[in-house]
């Protein structure tokens, strides 16, 4: 039993050391995963706004919290030297116009903070606050993301 336990612990440590997701030294991969998570969280909220899914205030708040965590971490994942690799869609503008990029990220975080504070319980109340968040997605992608073609 203890043997099994320790073996799974070893496996876990080995995974943690080799998987870039946990390593903290692969920002290209980490920011990609983080943004994938943001997309996954945006989808159910968007479907509710489009009327394709029943409204659920709990799901909405979970998504807002995912945005909150991601927006707090995202800016750190573009250190010098991470401009390329692994098919990154990060545009050179992130490094050339850091202030503008930080501003776009701040707009995202602010919109998320406002949405969490609003704590919407109906679809009608969700629409404006979620709309403000979604606007900031596009605002940043337009200037700081290149196309994967």
């Amino acid at each position: 039993m203890s043997y099994l336990k320790s073996r799974s612990l070893v496996t876990a440590i080995a995974l943690a050391l080799t998987s870039p997701l946990f390593a903290g030294d692969d920002p290209v991969h980490e920011r990609h995963e983080l943004m994938e998570g943001v997309g996954d969280a945006a989808k159910p909220v968007g479907q509710m706004l489009k009327g394709e899914r029943d409204f659920d205030a709990g799901v909405v708040m979970t998504s807002f919290q995912t945005f909150d965590e991601a927006s707090a971490r995202f800016g750190e994942l573009f250190p010098p030297g991470s401009e390329s690799g692994e098919g990154t869609e990060a545009a050179p503008a992130i490094w050339e116009d850091r202030a503008g990029f930080e501003e776009a990220l701040a707009a995202w975080a602010d919109a998320v903070d406002a949405a969490i504070a609003a704590n919407p319980q109906t679809l009608e109340d969700t629409k404006p606050v979620a709309g403000e968040i979604f606007k900031t997605c596009k605002g940043c992608h337009d200037n700081y993301r290149i196309e994967d073609e």
Binding site: G39, A42, K43, F134, K138, R145, E149
Partner: peptide
């Protein structure tokens, strides 16, 4: 209308 795909990625290029 919104610039979002069904996967909630944004329009590009």
């Amino acid at each position: 209308e919104s610039g979002f795909t069904p996967e909630f990625d944004t329009v590009g290029g």
